[in-house]
Simulated assay, not measured.
Amino acid sequence: MSHLSTPLVDVAPTARFLIVRLSALGDVVLTLPVACALREHFPQAKIAWMVEERNAPILAGHPAIDEIFTVPRRWYKSWEHIRRVRHTLREWSFDVALDVQSLTKSAFLAWLSGANFRVCFARPQGRELAPWLATHRVSAQGTHVVEIFLSLLRVLGIQSTSAEFKLTQTHEEAAWAESVLVELGLGVRFAVINPGAAWPCKRWPFDRFATVAKFLENTLAMPTLVLWGNQLERSWAETIVARAGGACRLAPRTDLRQMAAILRRASLMISADTGPLHMAAALGVPCVGLFGPTDPARVGPYGPGHIVIRAAKYTGRHPRRAPESLMQAITPEMVCEACAKLLCERKAA
């Protein structure tokens, strides 16, 4: 299946599709182009998405998605959850289940849906038991995961060459973001720092974030807002704000949609390889991505107008266990230079 010019799965224009991408936040955002391409080619279709509860809000109101189904983490450990999910999905009578995640847990959901056609990636992109539970396996094509995810649609004869995200916001979310920025004394030009990362080996030292924030304030007259998610991340953000003096503001507690509303108003985003970085890039915010254990060619901020910094390449087999020295090899000077370049380019444009 390396070159599909005609559909191997032939369905009606009014077919019912289920996209399965449960987690993580960044990967859910990077899967949105699949929904957009599917909607473009099947405007009369019904498109649903199965996602973990914690990531579902970012999909709310999306123009390509008719229905959002949610499951809690580790839903598969409860027979009651399995029974309930199966009943809910079978009511929809899906024709095609697109298992973008292509792991056992996502493939199991595709199987539970009862769809006649269950599509996942062939190995090595498809892992664990996923290829065994699918009716069709597609070899991954592309370099970046956005391109790879879109290549799954070749089984439907969709050769998508562009990626759209179409993240939405409500009037209430826009008004909330505007009021927060006014309250924090942030104008139309401000940068956002996101110090959090699930993997310890992805985190950049707090004092270096503070150094960059002081550079932005003192050299470019641009204040910085520091995002945080949980209480641990709040303590990191408070440390950065304290070390940066008056260059930083601490963001309020935000949910996913509030965070997106703030990000879409930012002039610059500085972050490691995390969900908020990919959200910012999807919203068209210029990003400086800090990379160590992961490959920016594959999972960097997608699209033009971004700069990625990777001072040391990881060559091992287990990126989650990569040494913290990879991120520490990135100097504040590298990041300051990238910030200045992006802002200069944006101003020129």
Rank of each mutant, 00 (worst) to 15 (best):
K105M: 09
I309P: 04
N218V: 10
G275E: 06
M334R: 08
R90Y: 10
S113F: 08
F215W: 13
D255T: 13
L232D: 14
A260P: 02
L220E: 05
T104V: 06
A134R: 12
S162E: 15
A281G: 04
A260K: 05
S113P: 00
H41A: 09
F190I: 11
S160H: 12
A97D: 03
Y314W: 14
A198E: 13
Y76N: 05
F149K: 04
E80A: 12
P304G: 01
I82S: 04
P195D: 11
K313M: 08
V241N: 00
A130W: 04
T14Q: 13
D99C: 03
P252C: 07
L153T: 07
G157L: 06
P332M: 09
R310D: 12
A140T: 15
P195I: 15
V20H: 06
C336H: 05
P72G: 03
A115T: 05
S179E: 13
R310V: 14
A338G: 07
V182S: 08
L25P: 05
M1K: 10
Q231Y: 12
L227A: 00
L152N: 08
A198V: 09
A24F: 15
C201D: 09
F209Y: 14
V226N: 01
G292T: 12
V119I: 10
R154M: 08
T315R: 08
Y302F: 13
G316T: 11
P293V: 00
E233C: 03
A272D: 11
L38N: 01
W49P: 00
I148K: 10
E164G: 06
T224D: 00
G246P: 06
A107H: 09
G284S: 07
P223I: 10
A110N: 13
L98T: 01
A122K: 11
A266E: 06
P293W: 00
P223L: 09
V85C: 02
T170L: 11
I47D: 03
H62A: 00
A349G: 05
D273P: 02
V241M: 02
A56G: 01
A175N: 11
N218A: 08
D295I: 12
V71A: 05
A110Q: 11
F94I: 08
I68P: 03
L129P: 01
V138P: 01
L150I: 15
E233Y: 12
A281L: 04
L250Y: 13
T219D: 09
L342D: 04
Q169M: 06
W176G: 03
G300M: 12
H3T: 14
P252V: 07
L227H: 02
A97C: 05
L156H: 07
H62V: 07
T161I: 11
S162P: 02
R321N: 07
K313R: 15
E233I: 14
H41R: 13
E80D: 10
A191R: 07
F69E: 05
L109R: 08
N55D: 09
P252G: 02
E183A: 11
R127N: 00
V146M: 03
H171Y: 13
V20Q: 02
P195T: 14
P124W: 03
L22K: 07
V192D: 01
E173M: 10
V34E: 01
T6S: 08
A174S: 11
V51E: 11
I240V: 15
V188N: 14
T315I: 11
E173N: 10
E324L: 15
T254R: 08
V155S: 00
W204K: 03
G245S: 01
A210W: 12
V212C: 03
